[in-house]
Write a protein that binds this DNA or RNA. Sequence first.
DNA 1: GTCTATAGATCGATAGAC
DNA 2: GTCTATCGATCTATAGAC
Lengths: 185, 185
Amino acid sequence: MAKLVSERADVIPALAEVFREYGFEGASLSLISERTGLGKGSLYNFFPGGKQEMASAVLKEIEGWFTTRIFAQLQWEADPRVAIEQMVEAVREYFQSGRRVCLVGAFAVANTRDLFAKPVRSYFAVWQKALAGALARAGKDKESADQLAEEALASIQGSLILARALGEPAVFERALTRLLISLLE
Amino acid sequence: MAKLVSERADVIPALAEVFREYGFEGASLSLISERTGLGKGSLYNFFPGGKQEMASAVLKEIEGWFTTRIFAQLQWEADPRVAIEQMVEAVREYFQSGRRVCLVGAFAVANTRDLFAKPVRSYFAVWQKALAGALARAGKDKESADQLAEEALASIQGSLILARALGEPAVFERALTRLLISLLE
DNA sequence: GTCTATAGATCGATAGAC
DNA sequence: GTCTATCGATCTATAGAC
């Protein structure tokens, strides 16, 4: 055991960072090779489908992270208010207080959007449904739960963009603070 | 007069559409040539700085559109509530009810972000300031005006992403409806 | 399994005929 | 001023040595 990089899963975090920083098209194979420390041969050994399979693997890992850390709590945590608080904290941590861009959001508007339309759609749809469910269990009627969840996701995505555009991560922090209040009131 | 395409300004709308659809890197010169109907020679005659100058020209035109149609009203319209209503309508129209992506937002998170950081920052900063000013004139205190304006921009950007990701332009429409209410209440 | 070398295509940009 | 032809660089992906 204790191998540094010898399994497919080991390179995915590095892949994710490269795609986040450079986007799908901007992340060239030479750059990926450099940042993962793997030659192109090794990369194609792990991902026979090439760059597209690498990006798909990253999206799958992201979906896994959110499922474990956020969606599952929203669905199964006994106290939905606690689950919502944990969601906001996990989101703050994941996006590094507004310094990290959302790869799924970026893929949603990029020109490569059709390549990843299904996982992108699923990511937001599952999140919206899980959050709306928790809000409903917290006492909201179905209609406003659906609407609040939709607003929440849009607020997270929008404040990430605004924070990045203005060079002010605090915009993201403020949005999360308001979000917590509006979801729990 | 009545020339079809014989001035620099005539090709900018087509350029804007290509950049919106394919992003900066995805918009290749061959594609741009095809969509504008101009050979590369002509393109470089209009834009000696190449693709980067084309994108800058597009950003400048976008800034001009928003300045005329939105920012100016927010600043100078006698009734700030009327200006805000007009803003929401202009935004709905501009983004084609959620079917059109925001190029400035896309440039803010793309890997080319440093290339256009200044105009991107300016676009959002000026908008936020103009909207906050109108809200203040409508009776809000400065602090909540600033915050509301920030929320509004994030909501527009976020709902555009969400609408695109889910394939549901209605998400954007709903966000605008809520926005109008929250800004005028 | 991992590397280097390179194929084959396309990129942004330029040169030169007209 | 607009085109075509083409440059050198870079891209994804593959082949083959080890």
